[in-house]
């Protein structure tokens, strides 16, 4: 069995006798942990430590990092996206995409953690409550500040956050006053909704008030199919 030291050498197990030579699939690099010869994966794992599949998923549930780390990372994400787009709508779309991929994974994680008591949400109000409390609490340690239904449109709902954490360090210059970096959080919400089969679009809008200058409203617009389903369910 190959051991850790051979992982660093270019040596390929070779013997002129074809019955002895270890099988080497054509597309692998020369370094190979032969323990995994039976699987189709060619990934190497360290000999002593286990892989991520041996770690319990709840291990990092309560762990915390500094808010500054997230702020710097998010800021860099915004700057990188800014270089590759022209226009604020595009920038918000990129942030939305980032949030989307995070939301997908977060949804899986949260539902798994709920375990047996996890309920599949079928009503609009149910899924929105899930987002307002569970999802929000898991990322921001506090529930969202409000949930409202639009009076004019059947398919529009509004989720209110008085002070979105992602915006706390961002001061938008005047020429980009349309930008709201909470598009990132909108992406998370959209992914959770999509994953629970409530397709729609989520956008972030800032509505500063006297007391709450950073207040943001996430406008959730559901697809036709969802509204129809909701009315059928009664």
């Amino acid at each position: 069995m190959q051991r850790g030291d051979s992982l660093n050498s270019p040596f390929v197990p070779f013997s002129p006798n074809p019955s002895i030579q270890q099988g080497t699939p054509t597309s692998t690099p020369p370094l190979k942990h032969t323990l995994s010869s039976s699987t189709s994966s060619n990934l190497r794992y360290s000999s002593s430590r286990k892989s991520i599949y041996d770690r319990h998923l709840n291990r990092s549930q309560r762990s915390e990092l500094s808010k500054a780390s997230f702020a710097f990372l998010f800021g860099e994400m915004v700057q990188y996206a800014q270089k590759r787009v022209n226009g604020i709508a595009d920038l918000e779309k990129k942030l939305n995409l980032h949030g989307y991929s995070i939301g997908q994974r977060l949804l899986e994680l949260l539902l798994w953690r709920e375990g047996r008591s996890a309920k599949r949400e079928t009503r609009i109000l149910g899924i929105l409550q899930f987002i307002t409390t569970t999802v929000y609490r898991s990322i921001f340690n506090k529930p969202a500040d409000g949930l409202e239904k639009s009076r004019d449109n059947e398919d529009e709902y509004m989720l209110i956050d008085n002070d979105p954490m992602v915006n706390s360090y961002i001061s938008v210059p005047k020429e980009m006053s349309q930008l709201n970096c909470a598009a990132f959080v909108a992406g998370i919400i959209e992914a959770v909704l999509d994953g629970c089969l409530f397709p729609g679009r989520v956008t972030a809008h800032s509505v500063p008030t006297e007391q709450l200058p950073a207040k943001t409203v996430f406008l959730i617009k559901f697809d036709e199919a969802v509204i129809e389903r909701e009315s059928v369910l009664g």
Binding site: A68, A71, F74, G75, V78, Q79, Y169, I170, S171, P173
Partner: peptide, 25 residues
């Protein structure tokens, strides 16, 4: 540190003397 360094939209290096222009600061 709070308003200038942590603000991703304000540069750290100021070539040509652009300076700090952050309203919150």
């Amino acid at each position: 540190v709070e308003f200038v360094t942590k603000n991703p939209l304000s540069p750290i290096e100021h070539p040509g003397g652009e300076g700090v222009a952050v309203e919150l600061f």
